[in-house]
Every structure is written in structure tokens, then in C-alpha cells.
Design a protein around this nucleic acid. Structure first.
Length: 889
RNA sequence: GGGAGCUUAGCUCAGUUGGUUUAGAGCAUCUGCCUUACAAGCAGAGGGUCGGGGGUUCGACUCCCUCAGCUCCCACCA
């Protein structure tokens, strides 16, 4: 393509869809098992986003990282597979569906389970997968043919099978748990849906008369006086001497007039309140456990809607808050209220209805985690699974060592329904179908009919399906020997957020070890949270999150990807700022313009390769290989931001600012063909290196600079797309070349500074005279200095030059640029004096070290040698400066 | 209340088992340039007593103690 056909600025909108469709058409994203060895296979399973969700910045970061990893693996010749999918997210999705129905005037309570699920599936069909379509705009190279959904038939069945299996192993049981009951919505809500707020409330001190002792009381403090209706004991600390005399006694509940025992338990905090606690097992989880320990009865005082139930003889049918007011008055009247104090405590509110949450005991399904968690702890502690960054190992261990049983039932309809079946008299069996359940139940009750059998109404926790994800996407639960599973499992990398380390990552490891006897992934890359400038988490409810698709429109997908990755080392939060995307876009444009430069050259086969081009090529070749090794190392350590930054600097600074300036021919002059070819080769390698980060622009430029004779669908040379090209590998390089050029760069910078100070335009040629003061002086890059600084002459001299601007380079070489009357002795002198001061400081610090006996005797030899070299360098420099100063005077 | 982590330039972060410089990078800032690849740019420059204090050491951003501030996780007190 000719330059006059190429846009002056990179325009992502024109090419992104073109290339994405092309990649899809060529089926590059699709992977199937082949005969490659395990080390040449690469697989990531995407953390499935909520099926009805829309793309937010967190997804952008997470999926950009995965795409970088999978594209790099693909270019390393691995059979790379990235499996996408969505999660049914039972709570969130059900809430959305309920809200949508409400808008239509439909109340969930008026629907049957089947009717509701029909609505939910309709919603899923309509909105499900929008998020996956959005990921395509980002450039995500997922194997879309393998897209899964956690409620797909096979994944659904896998969950049921696992439940049955764990039940049969005796690991799943039913138990009582305190749930967060929303008396307004009449449902239990999850911990995540409870908002804790600080509330100004009161602490009521109530007097309980002691049985058999006249006018003797024990005082307890409570924030919820209405719950005395459900008291079944009063509890003190066994070592608390104040209450020692109460052992074996009992008290009367005020107003209720029920006698309850005084018990002793170390749970009680002696410092709080009166040191004496009332026990209400039905309405507090701690009280519940104390109740079990001390075999106390449990008195449930509330109806589901938060009113007092009929079993309680007082205040029946009245609301809990009304009762609180009334009971305080009644207690006071009867003389049982000792005092009230202001008190601040935290109260849970329902996120959905804003009702005060009532802790309520209920029967739930649990998974015993004790034994199955152990191996999952080991594989992380012994580094079979690596966390990036490793600091999360601590948090993981802490959790796994204190693991609690997992409550896996949820009072919802959207999800995998628990395969437990009940008879009218309360017998329970676990079975795959109702028919199977009936069969089992008939063993003891052969008269039972199918309509007598009722399935559990609850569904399983969403995580109980996602913990199987790395296995179930391959149908590995139902088909443990299938080819895909054997090929791709264990997967390589998992990219996710630290917030769900326990909810999800730990449980996947547990499931992997339980069902495959093998870890599910080898590396876990933990991303941070995307925050706004004020440090707040970006969220839809705060409205502080930009729409990722708008950003892509503005800056291009590549620009946004670079922006996301620039400041997000693994495990660190990402303080997002749109200017980061701007930086990404600017980088695209820089690469684009470098392409326009290289693409626009006329080539000559007759002119010889200039000396400056030869050395420049040697230098850049060394630099490239040096940086390739560094970038490979960054990737090996999962330091993606560092890898990107190293690439960024290699392209922008080393290639564009130095190399291209060094080799580019004068205006309208042709370039020799050798230099052009090698430059194109460098460019290709850089594009390949950039491709995982910036897939679109690199594919476009790859084709513009590539051979352009074959065209398919208007696209050049289809067999040779960068996405499937072979990534360059680091090779040997001459390190001394890099060092030598570094001193050259310093010389060039000094000359540019002089030009700037003296206001000499670049087009005015200068003369440079150099006085070597050391045999080590390097002349290799003189031709480059001459070219970049526009020197008409570069000459070595043995005597100092007057009326020249001077500076001192490496090895104390003196550089002179004759400027005639432009020289101002005073400024030259100040310059020299400040350099002298620096050199003297260095000399002093080295001398003090070297004169220290103990330093010389205990420091290792190389350290001392270095110090000696610093000393002699400083000394030499001081001598040179001193002489120059003498001449100025 | 328990646990983990963090504190280096205006911002975001590197700094590997203490000794490669006079502690680095990107962005931002300042100065000069519309120099025919690129003003979404070029060239140059400035900026840090490495949170405070103490200790170990010939030598500390790096190791130990202590104080202060911030963050996250878990559990929540009637």
C-alpha cells in the first residue's frame, strides 16, 4: 500500500471489525486436541460473568489479561484454547427477573415455580450473552464454539451428580443455620445482600427476679427487649465471682413469668453490660449454639412477617418494633427496667426492601469442608499451584485452616434444584429423579405414591456449580474419560479477582482434587479492583464507571487494552483514569507513524549501506535481544504491566526515537535495500511482540508492510497473519555494544543541550573536536553522532580548543564545539564548577569508604574494585576540569 | 476483636538473597521547537533526607524493634 492511501492518523474504527471477522473466519480461535505434548498446550477457562450482566471495567481488565496470555501462547506455537461462558448467578439474576416482572405488574408470589422459570429463561435468552458479544469488541480471542453456560443441560446435571455423590459420601448433610430473614420480602437473603448500618439505639438494663430470693435480681443488658419472650436461660461467665452465688439457681422472665435457669459459659464477655447475658436460642446464632451445648429449649417468637406468633401469649400479632416500644413501657411500669443507655450498634438491612433483617433459624443443606479442604491447602502451600502475587498464599492458608462448612442451599428458584425428596412424614432421600426417589423410599414405605413425594424447593448456591467450571466445561463430571478433558485439564492460568479467592478459587481446587485427583490450573493471576480517581470501586450503582464500549469507540480497543494494563501489576488495584487510554491511543499512533515512515521510503539497490546504518543495526539487534530476554522474564513472572512497559519503551524510545532517526535517509533520498530489509524485519518482530497487547493495529500494519500481491476478501496474504505467526525469541547479544551506545547517547544529548542553550537550529551544521584522555575511548558510533547532531566535522585533537563550548564525557574525554563569539566564559565556568562539585563529592564518598579499614577487610573484592574504579574515574575527571578552569581564567 | 499487607518523585509503581552508580520508570510538570513519519509529536530540564524514631552492620530502601498512617480479609458483643 502506498503512503498516500494511508491515513495520517491511526483510525481504529476502520479496521477492528475487519480483523476480528477475519480471525473468526480463519477459525484461529478454535482449538481441538491434537498430538502436542502437554507443555505445548495452553488453556484458560474464563471466569464466567453473570449471564445477564453487561461489560464493566473489571471485566475489561480481567479479559484483557487473559487475551494477552492466550495470544502470546498461540504465537509461541502452543495449541491455545480460551473457553468462554456465562454464569447463571442465581441471586443476582433472580433479583433482576423479579424486578422486571414487578415493572410489568407481576408479583413473583403469584407465579408457580414453572411459570417463574419460564420468565427467567426468556430473560436469559434475551439478555444472556450480550456481555460475550461485548468482549468481541475488546478483541477477546475465545474459542466461541466452546461457549458454556452453568445451566446448560450437561453442566446442570454435573452439579446434581456431584451433589448426590457428596451426599452418598456422607459429606452433605442438613443442619440448622441462622439465615438473614427479610420479613418484608418473606425470603432469606445472602450475607452479601445485607447492608450493615450504624444505628443510634438503646441498651436496656432489665431485672430478672431470682427464684427463691426475695427482692433479689440479676440485671442483663439488651438492645432487643422484645426477645425476652423467647428467653430460655440467663448466662454468666463461670469465673465471674459476682455471679458465683447464683450457681444452680433460676430466674423469672419479667412479664412472661416463665422460670429459666442460670447457666455458666465462657462465651460471656465479663466486661460488657452487666456481665450477664440472656439466651434466646431461636433468634441469635451464638445463643443457638449455647442452647445446644446446655440443652436449652428454643422458643421461636416471630411469624415470618416479623409479628409475634400465637404460641407466645403476649403481644400476639403485633409487629416486632411496636412490641419493643410497648414492652419497654410495660417493663418500666412493672419496675423491671433498671435504666436505659444510648448505644451505637450495627444493624443489618435488606438491600432489596430496606427492612431490618431478622436472624432466623432454618434448616439448610451443608457440605462438610473439613477433610476435602486439606489437600487443597497443600497444593497451594507446596507451590504446585502458584499465586501471582504470592502474598495471597497467606490469606488462602488462613482461610483454609479455619474453613467452615459450606451452606449450599438457597431459597430461590433460578438455579440447580436440590435433588432431595421428602415424604409427607418427613423422610428424605437424595436421588437424581423423583422416580428414583420413589423407588428408594418404597423400600421402607411400599405404599408411597409418586404424588406423595415432594422435591426440595430450594436451589444450590451458584458457587456450587461454578466450583466445577474447569471440569464441567469439558463435561468432565459425566464423561470423565473424554478426549477434551484429558487434553486440556489441568488448565494453565486462571485470571480472577482476590475477592473471590475463597468463594471460587479455593473451591475449584477442592473440586478438582476431589473429582480429577489433579489441580484445576497451575497459575492463579489475581487482578486488582478498578477504582476511580477518588479511590472508589467502580460500580454501576455509584455511576462512576465509564462504559467500556464508549472508551473503545473513543480510543480504540488497542488503546483501551494498553490503558488498562499500563498501571496494573498483579494484585494491585487499578486507579483508572481515561488519560491512560489516551496514552494507549497515542502509542498506537506512534506505531502507526513509524509505519508510515518506513513504508514511504524509496529503495535503492545501488547505493552502499552507510557506516552509521551498519553500527545502528548492530546496536538495535543487541538491544532487541536484551529486551526480549527481559520481557520473557516478566511474562514468566506474570508481570504483565512490566512486560508491556518494557515493550513500550523498546518501541517508542529505542526503535522510534533512536534507531529510526539513526538510519533514516535524508529527505527524499532513497534508502539502501539492506538497511530497509533489516528494518522491516525489526519492525515485524516488534509488531509480534506487541500483538498480544494490541492485536488490531499490529495485524493491520503487519499486512501493510507485508507482501501485498495476494488478496483474499481485500485482505493481503491470508496465510501469514500475525496472530498465528511465531513470536521472536531472545538470542545472544553483545552487551558491550549496548554499553558503548549508552555513552554515545550521552554525548548526543550533551550536544543537543548545547544547541538548545545557544539557540542553534538543527539545520545549522556544527563541528565537534574530541580530546581523548584515556585509551578506552570508543569511536564505534562516531558516524551516528555525526549524523544525529548534524556535524560537518568530527575530529580528534590533542590540545584543548578555545572559544568552544565543552563538556566531559565517559573516560574523561573532552568535547569541544567551537562557537566563536557565542561562548560566554561565565556560563561555561558555572557549568564546569557544578561538574567539579559532583566529581568531588563522588571522590570524597569513595575515599571515605576506601580509607575505612573494616570496609577494605570485610567487603567482597568486586565491591572494593568498583569503589577503586569510581575513585580513579572521579580523580581523572577532577584533573580535567581543573585544567579547563585554569584556561578559562 | 483476630489475621494479612502496604507506606520510595505531584500521581501510579519497580527496586530480586544488604554493597553496579550520586535510588529508577511511566505519566504529569517546566523550557524550547509546527525540524516533510508523528503537536495524539520532537528535543531538553527540574523533581525524592526511600512514613517517623531506634538498633544490627565496614555498609540499610533492603534485616530487627518501635511509633504513626492507610488498605484488605475474617468474625462480630448482647
Amino acid at each position: 500500500m502506498k503512503n498516500d492511501e494511508i491515513a495520517l492518523k491511526y483510525s481504529p474504527q476502520d479496521i477492528e471489525d475487519k480483523w476480528y471477522n477475519h480471525w473468526l473466519k480463519m477459525n484461529y480461535f478454535h482449538s481441538k486436541p491434537d498430538d502436542k505434548e502437554p507443555e505445548n498446550r495452553y488453556c484458560i477457562v474464563m471466569p464466567p460473568p453473570n449471564v445477564t450482566g453487561v461489560l464493566h471495567m473489571g471485566h475489561m481488565l480481567n479479559n484483557t489479561i487473559q487475551d494477552v496470555l492466550v495470544r502470546r501462547a498461540r504465537m509461541q506455537g502452543k495449541n491455545a484454547c480460551w473457553i468462554p461462558g456465562t454464569d447463571h448467578a442465581s441471586i443476582a439474576t433472580e433479583a433482576k427477573v423479579v424486578a422486571k416482572l414487578k415493572e410489568e405488574g407481576i408479583d413473583k408470589k403469584d407465579l408457580t415455580r414453572e411459570e417463574f422459570l419460564k420468565h427467567a429463561w426468556d430473560w436469559k435468552e434475551k439478555h444472556g450473552g450480550i456481555i460475550l458479544e461485548q468482549l468481541k469488541k475488546l478483541g477477546a480471542s475465545c474459542d466461541w464454539e466452546r461457549t458454556k453456560f452453568t445451566m446448560d443441560e450437561d453442566l446442570y446435571e454435573s452439579v446434581i451428580d456431584v451433589f448426590i455423590d457428596l451426599y452418598n459420601k456422607g459429606l452433605i448433610y442438613r443442619g440448622v443455620r441462622m439465615v438473614n430473614w427479610d420479613p418484608s420480602a418473606l425470603t432469606a437473603v445472602s450475607d452479601e445482600e445485607v447492608i450493615h448500618k450504624e444505628i443510634q439505639s438503646k441498651l436496656y438494663y432489665l431485672k430478672y427476679p431470682i427464684v427463691g430470693e426475695k427482692d433479689a435480681f440479676v440485671t442483663i443488658a439488651t438492645t432487643r427487649p422484645e426477645t425476652i419472650l423467647g428467653d430460655t436461660a440467663v448466662c454468666c461467665h463461670p469465673d465471674d465471682e459476682r455471679f458465683a452465688h447464683l450457681k444452680g439457681k433460676s430466674v423469672i422472665i419479667p412479664l412472661v413469668n416463665r422460670e429459666i435457669p442460670i447457666i455458666f459459659d465462657e462465651y460471656v464477655d465479663r466486661e460488657f453490660g452487666t456481665g450477664c447475658l440472656k439466651i434466646t436460642p431461636a433468634h441469635d446464632i451464638n445463643d443457638y449454639h449455647i442452647g445446644i451445648k446446655h440443652r436449652l429449649p428454643s422458643v421461636d417468637i416471630f411469624n415470618d412477617n416479623g409479628t409475634i406468633n400465637e404460641k407466645i401469649e403476649l403481644y400476639v400479632g403485633k409487629d416486632r418494633f411496636d412490641v419493643r416500644k410497648e414492652i419497654v413501657i410495660d417493663l418500666e411500669k412493672s419496675g423491671y427496667l433498671e435504666k436505659t443507655e444510648d448505644y451505637t450498634n450495627k444493624v443489618g438491612f435488606s438491600e432489596r426492601t430496606n427492612a431490618v433483617i431478622e436472624p432466623k433459624l432454618s434448616l439448610q443443606w451443608f457440605l462438610n469442608m473439613q477433610d476435602i479442604a486439606k489437600p487443597a491447602l497443600d497444593v497451594v502451600m507446596n507451590d504446585r499451584i502458584l499465586f501471582h502475587p504470592a502474598k495471597f498464599k497467606n490469606t488462602y492458608r488462613h482461610w483454609m485452616e479455619n474453613v467452615k462448612d459450606w451452606c449450599i442451599s438457597r431459597q430461590l428458584w433460578w438455579g440447580q434444584r436440590i435433588p432431595a425428596f421428602y415424604t409427607p412424614n418427613g423422610d428424605v432421600v437424595v436421588a437424581k429423579t423423583k422416580e428414583e426417589a420413589l423407588e428408594k423410599l418404597r423400600i421402607t414405605n411400599y405404599e408411597l405414591r409418586i404424588e406423595d413425594v415432594k422435591q426440595d424447593e430450594d436451589v444450590l448456591d451458584t458457587w456450587f456449580s461454578s466450583w466445577l467450571w474447569p471440569i464441567s466445561v469439558f463435561d468432565g463430571i459425566q464423561n470423565p474419560d473424554n478426549k477434551d478433558l484429558k487434553y486440556y485439564y489441568p488448565t494453565n492460568d486462571l485470571v480472577t479477582a482476590p475477592e473471590i479467592l475463597f468463594f471460587w478459587v479455593a473451591r475449584m481446587i477442592i473440586a478438582g482434587l476431589e473429582y480429577r485427583h489433579e489441580i484445576p490450573f497451575k497459575n492463579v493471576y489475581l487482578t486488582g479492583i478498578v477504582r476511580d480517581k477518588l479511590g472508589r470501586k467502580m460500580s454501576k450503582s455509584l455511576g462512576n464507571s465509564p462504559d467500556p464500549l464508549d472508551l473503545i469507540k473513543l480510543y480504540g480497543a488497542d488503546g483501551v487494552r494498553v490503558g488498562m494494563l499500563l498501571t496494573s501489576p498483579a494484585g494491585n488495584d487499578l486507579p483508572f483514569d481515561e488519560s491512560l487510554c489516551e496514552q494507549g491511543r497515542n502509542f498506537c499512533n506512534k506505531i502507526w507513524n513509524a509505519m508510515r515512515l518506513v513504508n514511504g521510503w524509496d529503495v535503492s539497490n545501488t547505493i552502499e549501506q552507510p557506516e552509521y546504518a551498519k553500527v545502528s543495526i548492530d546496536w538495535f539487534d543487541a538491544k532487541l535481544n536484551e529486551q526480549l530476554a527481559i520481557i520473557e522474564d516478566h511474562f514468566a513472572k506474570y508481570r504483565l504491566s512490566d512486560a508491556l512497559m518494557a515493550t513500550y519503551k523498546l518501541v517508542w524510545d529505542d526503535f522510534c526515537s533512536w534507531y529510526l532517526e539513526m538510519i533514516k535517509p535524508a529527505y527524499l533520498q532513497p534508502i539502501d535495500s539492506d538497511t530497509r530489509l533489516i528494518t522491516l524485519d525489526f519492525f515485524d518482530k516488534l509488531l509480534q511482540l506487541l500483538h498480544p497487547f494490541m492485536p488490531f493495529i499490529t495485524e493491520e500494519i503487519w499486512h501493510i508492510l507485508g507482501v501485498d500481491d495476494i488478496k483474499i476478501d481485500g485482505i493481503d496474504d491470508c496465510d501469514d497473519d500475525i496472530i498465528v505467526s511465531e513470536l521472536p525469541k531472545s538470542g545472544n547479544f553483545d552487551n558491550s555494544l549496548i554499553d558503548k551506545f549508552e555513552t554515545t547517547q550521552q554525548v548526543i544529548t550533551e550536544i543537543r543541550t548545547i544547541r538548545k542553550e545557544k539557540n542553534i537550529p538543527q539545520k545549522d551544521a556544527l563541528m565537534l573536536f574530541i580530546k581523548k584522555n584515556n585509551e578506552q575511548h570508543e569511536t564505534l558510533f562516531d558516524s551516528v553522532i555525526q549524523k544525529l547532531c548534524n556535524l560537518e566535522k568530527l575530529e580528534y585533537i590533542s590540545e584543548k580548543l578555545e572559544n568552544a563550548s565543552t563538556f566531559i564525557g565517559a573516560n574523561s574525554a573532552e568535547y569541544f564545539i567551537p562557537l566563536g563569539n557565542k561562548i560566554d566564559k561565565d556560563t561555561e565556568k558555572t557549568k564546569l564548577l557544578s561538574e567539579l562539585k559532583q566529581a568531588e563529592n563522588l571522590l570524597r564518598s569513595t575515599q571515605s569508604k576506601l580509607s575505612n579499614e573494616r570496609f577494605v577487610s570485610s567487603a567482597p573484592e568486586p565491591v572494593i574494585a568498583l569503589e577503586r574504579k569510581k575513585q580513579s574515574d572521579a580523580q581523572q575527571k577532577i584533573n580535567v576540569i581543573t585544567k579547563q578552569l585554569e584556561q578559562l581564567n
